[in-house]
């Protein structure tokens, strides 16, 4: 029984990690290549969810909605890059933080105006509603397995693009040595637009995947973006592999902390206090890990190949 619970929780942690990876992947590339701190990256997560939700009700098909919503989110990302991000790449990080903080407010209120404050629940097709039983005691929602599958497929795809294609080569070169790529006469501006929009679309995909579980809501991206930053700092800015492993570490810590920490705390404090403290302390753990990594190995666990 105990091991069955542990396995279930590990799968839950994996699913959370995969989701974090989808948000962190674009963030780490944008950060690594353009040296651009994009707090508004989480907004694409939200916008993807809302676009997808709207399409689900129009088309009556979740899969079709996702397939259409991804390119639409890509367009939103592209427009945001052209209108705002592009003009401040050259500025310092402080300006990035402030401008994208402003973007968050604009996106959040925009969604409020367009879709209202009440959030949007997204129905799943029947074939995703059930559970998959691995044994009599290990039973996992099929939809969560679907998230894991989609996430792994995207991760694999990204990995192949980054390692095997010409664009990927430019991305890698950009992440480790920006001036070199520019000096080669590559149209760096288009590369930036492409990476930004693709990152937005992947984050949007994550939002689409989570909203049948938690509903789409205003501000959903702001909760995840800070954790996504933790992920890319742990993994190493600019590294897809780092983002993947960082996301899994954070997903596991969070899930296992919520599962087991209260039992640990009950040994040393009252039940009531343990139940209050455990979730907060498990949330704290990831920041402790991040601070430790920054202090000891600021470049992260898997920094992109050094220049």
């Amino acid at each position: 029984m105990e091991s069955a619970l542990l396995i279930t929780q590990l799968l839950n942690g994996l699913q959370l990690g995969i989701l974090l990876f989808l948000v962190a992947a674009g963030l780490t590339l944008i950060f690594g290549i353009m040296d651009f701190v994009n707090l508004a990256h989480g907004s694409f997560y939200m916008i993807g969810a809302y676009i997808c939700g709207t399409l689900v009700y129009l088309l009556d098909s979740f899969v079709l909605a996702v397939i259409l919503a991804v390119p639409l989110t890509l367009v939103v990302g592209y427009v945001a890059e052209r209108l705002v991000a592009r003009s401040i790449y050259a500025r310092d990080h402080l300006d990035h933080v402030l401008a994208t903080f402003g973007l968050i407010l604009i996106f959040d209120t925009g969604v409020h105006l367009l879709w209202g404050a009440e959030g949007m629940s997204i129905p799943l097709p029947d074939w995703l509603q059930g559970q998959v039983a691995f044994s009599s005691t290990i039973e996992v929602p099929s939809y969560r397995l679907a998230i894991i599958a989609v996430g792994l497929a995207v991760a694999l795809g990204l990995f192949l693009v980054v390692t095997k294609t010409r664009i990927g080569m430019l991305i890698r070169a950009g992440a480790s040595n920006r001036t070199m790529v520019q000096a080669l006469g590559i149209d760096i501006k288009n590369l930036f637009s492409l990476v930004f929009a693709a990152g937005a679309a992947i984050a949007g995909l994550a939002g689409m995947m989570i909203s049948p579980i938690t509903e789409a809501s205003i501000g959903m991206g702001n909760d995840i973006i800070i954790v996504a930053f933790v992920v890319i700092i742990i993994g190493g800015i600019g590294s897809i592999k780092g983002a993947f492993i960082g996301a899994l570490i954070v997903g596991m810590i969070d899930t296992l902390g919520r599962s087991y920490l209260d039992q640990l705390f009950k040994l040393v404090m009252s039940d009531q206090n343990a139940e209050t403290a455990a979730p907060a302390i498990s949330a704290m753990l990831i920041y402790i890990l991040m601070a430790a990594i920054l202090a000891v190995r600021p470049q992260g666990l898997f920094p992109p190949k050094v220049r």
Binding site: F31, V37, H93, V97, I226, F229, V230, I233, I237, Q272, N273, T276, A277, A278, P279, A280, I281, A283, M284, Y287, I288, M290, A291, L294, A295, P298
Partner: peptide
């Protein structure tokens, strides 16, 4: 924190403040 620079400094100061945030959250 001051062992780090630039964006790492931004992030590590944020990490410490989040720790304090969650610490007080946990103090029933």
């Amino acid at each position: 924190s001051l062992r780090t620079k630039g964006v790492h400094f931004i992030m590590i100061t944020m990490a410490f403040s989040q720790m304090i945030f969650f610490l007080f959250l946990s103090l029933e």
